[in-house]
Design a protein around this nucleic acid. Structure first.
Lengths: 361, 361
DNA sequence: GAGAGCAGTGAAAACGTTTACAGCGTCGTA
DNA sequence: TACGACGCTGTAAACGTTTTCACTGCTCTC
């Protein structure tokens, strides 16, 4: 690209490191070293350089830096949507940790479309981010997994870490870090909480085949039922996606078909719980007097509606993802690693002991 | 950086455009032209190049591209926090439009700290984003404005557009686009809504000197009172920041001091409304039976709690910001521009006509 | 007092693209 | 049949950094 052809007069152009070097009377190498912190330099030189930077209002060109140096000092995060509280909190954690480590944060959204997710990973590959954090659940489709595994290898080859946040590993020999939280354990614990209160017919809202998150949660739910010797009725597992309006729909349709055949509701997440709660109300059913309800995630709607739920360390998830990835990048080790963060129940006011109508003890 | 010193054997390195060119039997210029869409090329060549790209799994290096070319194909957004629904929705709009325009999105957070905001703008300047979108309100401090104006000029010089989203212009000769929404008009409309229902003592929650958003909203509130010939009682304007727990605090403290001296609450935003609602409840006051309440923003909590509020076109705000900025970048014109998006009331179920206790008609 | 070490600096080669310019055929026209 | 035009391609400079290597002067230590 030949920018300045004959005469150099075409208006002011941004200051470069060369200008700073000239103004400070040193070489560009010295300026680079001092500014990037590679080497402090002699106090006098250092002062001169920093003054030149200030006087010329110099800012480095990140593109040039990324090209010449090894890393581009950035962290990429790919989520379904930015407005969903779950992703927003994880993203916030990523942001926070990235800022601490002096990296900036690139965000991509997929709208839950696996194809778009794959494309976005490619985009991040172009960007040469130090790590690419994939958060949230997707269909555990085999073809998809194979393609993602291929991308993972490509990323590793280019020196960036792939982190799977809240989703299972791609395979034993795929270079990717995994930061999870205990979906199954949380679901087990909160189902047990309901069972201890005497509930036996617990409606699970949000079953979804091939989606890992609801699958893990439903597994905990089933295991708790089994451990408490309560019969498992597949009819109590209602299919729906993890959104508020879906919770509303699932309950509405159920109640339209007849009176409630359950005493408690385990909503797949808090959003579903909020929607379900509204539908129950519109049918004259109160929480917790008539129906008990629990959720999962402990995100904003939960506190507002006094929902007993499972707390997920969202921000910690994001922070851990960044921390692990950068640590791993420094260590140059390539073996997969896996971390599981714990969850715990937050008891509010949406569960009451069931009123036994006679019969068994 | 001298990477390959003596022998070329140090494991596989990422594919470059040169590899593609060699593999396809053309020059790098041809590959570049075909891939960047500058020139389609002859069908046969085109096919060969694209096949080489596929076979070698080539992805371009965004840093090199940004360095050599004029633009870095990215859009930057700076917000207080990613988890706050207001910012999240604007960010989502930015994301969406950026994706449509084929740009990627860099996000920075400030934690409401003006100093950090300024620093983040500098960071984005390094990044050579095509536009830098600043969203949300800040203290309208004069020193801050001067520094930001200086940064705005620097950004303009470097060829990127500064967009102020939901905040007032920096000054007449500062090169920045402004995308606003009608805070004052919305507040006026919803205050009028309350006044029409007979409310005269309306508590405003969230006054904050020097913060532009609450200031604009309170201005609409005052104007509505004046136009309806209702006395303005400064004691009804409660100071607090725009968060949920602050809404809770403001009402709690007020009610701890004595019985309610108001019949309606105008919460500075929906988050405050949610917190205030909880506090009212804990004091045995129901909405809307005992106290009417309205909010501002029309974000998730609002629908959940049936809040009458002012709808703000958050996503549209973000999309417009990106659209305007890129349009402006193409047109190369440097004059400031300003756009104001409208708002409208969303009536739910949180306002009831006031019950007159005798006296006046 | 001489050699080794070391702190500080400079010159220049990369990094992987884009793009201005020039060169080459091939085609339609005179 | 010869000539300009045009479509397609190649060569090479430039973008603004980082980093290797080499070179100064110094200060120690023996």
């Amino acid at each position: 690209m030949v920018r300045r052809a004959a005469s150099d007069n075409e208006g002011p152009r941004p200051t470069t490191i060369r200008d700073v070097a000239a103004h400070a009377g040193v070489s560009v190498a010295t300026v680079s070293r001092i500014l990037s912190g590679t080497y402090p330099g002699a106090p006098a030189t250092r002062t001169r350089v920093l003054r030149a930077v200030r006087e010329l209002d110099y800012v480095a060109n990140a593109n040039a830096r990324g090209l010449a140096g090894a890393s581009s000092r950035s962290v990429a995060i790919i989520v379904n949507s930015v407005v969903s509280p779950h992703y927003a909190h994880v993203a916030q954690g990523v942001q926070t940790q990235a800022a601490i480590e002096g990296k900036l944060c690139i965000v991509g959204t997929t709208g839950s479309d696996p194809e778009r997710e794959l494309a976005t990973v490619q985009l991040m590959r172009e960007e040469h981010a130090e790590c690419v954090i994939l958060v949230g659940n997707v269909v555990a489709d085999e073809a998809y997994r194979a393609r993602m595994a291929e991308y993972a290898r490509a990323l590793a080859l280019a020196g960036s870490q792939l982190v799977l946040c809240g989703r299972p590993p791609l395979g034993p020999d795929v270079p990717a870090l995994v930061v999870e939280y205990d979906n199954t354990g949380g679901a087990y614990a909160i189902t047990s909480h309901l069972l201890s209160a005497g509930h036996q017919r617990i409606l699970f809202l949000g079953r979804r085949d091939n989606y890992t998150t609801p699958e893990s949660r439903i597994a905990g739910y089933r295991k708790a039922l089994a451990d408490h010797h309560v019969d498992h009725d597949p009819g109590l597992e209602v299919e729906g996606s993890m959104e508020r309006h879906e919770g509303y729909r699932m309950i509405s349709e159920r109640l339209a078909a007849g009176p409630p055949d359950f005493t408690a509701v385990f909503a797949g997440n808090d959003l579903i719980a909020a929607g379900a709660r509204q539908a129950l109300r519109e049918h004259g059913l109160r929480i917790p007097e008539d129906i008990s309800m629990v959720g999962f995630d402990d995100l904003p709607p939960a506190a507002d509606i006094g929902l007993t739920t499972v707390h997920v360390p969202h921000e910690e998830l994001g922070r851990t993802a960044v921390r692990m990835a950068l640590q791993r990048a420094r260590d140059k080790s390539g073996t997969p690693e896996r971390v599981m963060l714990g969850t715990h129940i937050v008891v509010r006011d949406s569960v009451r002991p069931v009123v036994r109508s006679g019969s068994r003890p």
